[in-house]
Design a protein around this nucleic acid. Structure first.
Lengths: 145, 145
DNA sequence: TTTAATAGCTATAGTCGCTGTAGGTTCAAG
DNA sequence: CTTGAACCTACAGCGACTATAGCTATTAAA
């Protein structure tokens, strides 16, 4: 074979990093390809399709577990696509939730910054607000996400 | 001492979990308090103030490193607050960046879901888009954040 | 044909910010 | 005096990679 699909070529073709591809194989997101005589991975074009699918779903923020489900659904051509749509709807809800939270953070940060007139730390509005939640307008009482 | 500030009381007072408080101590975000005869942590009110500061900054999405910087700035009452404001502005930019990205994901997800008429996987628009980025309207070509 | 550069390999640790567990000790109430 | 809650340390695990060390294989040029 003159131009075998080595891991480096697959990385270039899909936009994934070499290590990420090996990582996906390790966690079972990507089937192990055959190996060359020297024990190097040689991929099939189908691997590239699958990786593009995974990467694109990751770009859209789907967690790997959801992508795993989407992948197995994608292979069942005759099944109903209701389950796939449900996963996408769930992801949409999650994205909207995150936007909401970030928007309230943005409001609070802007207020902090705008109200700070500069000067000494002792009078710094940024520091003051961080010391005292009651100075906040919105409720952003959770740490995660 | 009749009502010592044990770690559990501090947790309640600040909204941090007990383990989180110990974690913050371990990574140097919170000074080690004195201990009781039986080697249990006994805090001062100042610890609570500091924890409230940290938690509030976390709620606003600041990473711990930035909070570390903010904390050391907060102690320099006579210094200019320009550095603190800069950290807050940086965080605002980061939050805005994330909102932007999430908004484009939201657009794409809604389009995927709306266009999918249900039916078989073979015709599923959700699956189809994931297989092929060129079907996307926006550019969301990065995975992280 | 040899050699040097590039690309590949495995295994492991680190990132961030916690959270959870196991297996023990101390404290406070009854 | 006993029970049960709260505390202790130390370590593993999460998600999704990324980076490093120390090798081996392949390939292109000399």
């Amino acid at each position: 074979m003159p131009n075998p699909l080595t891991i480096g070529r697959v990385a270039k073709a899909t936009g994934c990093k070499v290590q990420t591809i090996r990582y996906y194989e390790q966690i079972g997101m990507l089937p192990s390809p055959d190996c060359s005589a020297g024990n190097q991975r040689i991929y099939e074009p189908a691997h590239i399709d699958r990786l593009i699918f995974v990467r694109h779903a990751r770009e859209l923020g789907f967690p790997l577990n959801a992508i795993r489900d989407l992948l197995s659904l994608a292979d069942e051509l005759d099944q109903s696509c209701e389950a796939a749509d449900a996963i996408a709807r769930e992801q949409l809800v999650e994205v909207e939730r995150r936007i909401e939270r970030l928007r309230s953070l943005k409001t609070e940060l802007r207020r902090m910054i705008r109200q700070c007139k500069g000067g000494r730390i002792a009078d710094c509005y940024v520091i003051e607000v961080l010391n005292d939640h009651t100075q906040c307008v919105s409720n952003h009482r959770e740490v995660g996400a």
